[in-house]
Design a protein around this nucleic acid. Sequence first.
DNA 1: AAGCAGTCCAACCGCGGTTCT
DNA 2: AAGAACCGCGGTTGGACTGCT
Length: 284
Amino acid sequence: MGRQPCCDKVGLKRGPWTIEEDHKLMNFILNNGIHCWRMVPKLAGLLRCGKSCRLRWINYLRPDLKRGAFTETEENQIIQLHTCLGNRWSKIASHFPGRTDNEIKNHWNTRIKKRLKHLGVDPLTHKPIEQKENIEENKQTITREDSSSSISQGQEESQDSGLEAKLQQDGNGNKGFPEFNDKLQNVPELAGFDETNDLLKNYEMFCGSLDLGTFLLNQGTNTSNTSTSNSYSTSSFSVEESNNPSISIGESIQEHSLQKWVDSVDSMLSWDGFNNLEQDLFFF
DNA sequence: AAGCAGTCCAACCGCGGTTCT
DNA sequence: AAGAACCGCGGTTGGACTGCT
C-alpha cells in the first residue's frame, strides 16, 4: 500500500556538495533527464536523498541559472512583486528567468529588507513605519480617552474607521508620505542614488492608483525586451522547462544544441570549481 | 594577531497539497 | 477510499567570510 519511501535516511550524506558529487549529478541529469527525483541519487551513484539532489540542481547546477548580483531593476521588481505576492518566492522567482526562489528569498532577507527599513518602510506591509506607528499611537490614545470619556461604541468605530481610512489614504497617493520623502532625502548614503529614486517611484506607484494588472503586463513586456531575458529565451533551457521537472531536460538538451549550452556554461564565472575540470572529463 | 559581531548564502527542515498504490 | 510517499514551497540554520576593535 502506498508508495516506496523516498529514501532511507541512514547512511546518506548531508552538508555541502563536493565537486565530484556535482559532477555526478550533472552528468546523470544531462544524460538521462529528470523523471523521478527519488531514483536520481541511486542511479547517479550519490549518497544523497532525492530531495537534496533536486535542491542542488535547482539552486546551483541548473544551466540556465543567472549568476551574479541582482541589478537595480531586478531588485525593484522584486519589491514590486513582493507588494502584491507577499512571501511567495517561487511565484516571484518565476518572473526572473535564471533566478531561484532561494536566491530571491535570501536577497530579500539580507539586503532588500534592510534597505526598506532604512527608508522607513515596513517590509511586511510595505507601508511607512512611522505613520503606522503613529496610527497605532493614535488608536491607543483614543482607546485611553474612550475609557475615561463617554464616547459611544459607534463613535469609537467611526473614529477607528476614520483612522484606517486615513492610513489607506496615506498609503494611496504618496502625497501622504511627507516624512517618508523627507527621510529619503536625509539618508546620506542613499541620497542621490538612482536606486533611491527608483524605490521611491516604486512606492509611489504601488501606493498610488496603480493598475497592478497593467503594471505586471508591462513588466512582462519590459522584461522580454531586455537583452538578458532575450538570451534566456533563446537558450536551450527555457524557464518553463527548468521549473517543470516532468519535462525531460535531457531530451530538451538532445533536441537543442548541447554545444550551445556548453558555450553558455563557459561564460558562467561562478563555476570556478568546474572550470578546473577537463572538458572531456566533464562530458565524458 | 586575536576575538567578536555582522553579513551572506547554501543547505536543511517541516508542512501542505498532490499523486500513487 | 485510504494511507503513504512525492514534490514543491517557505522558514530557518549553520558555517564561511569580512570588517572592526
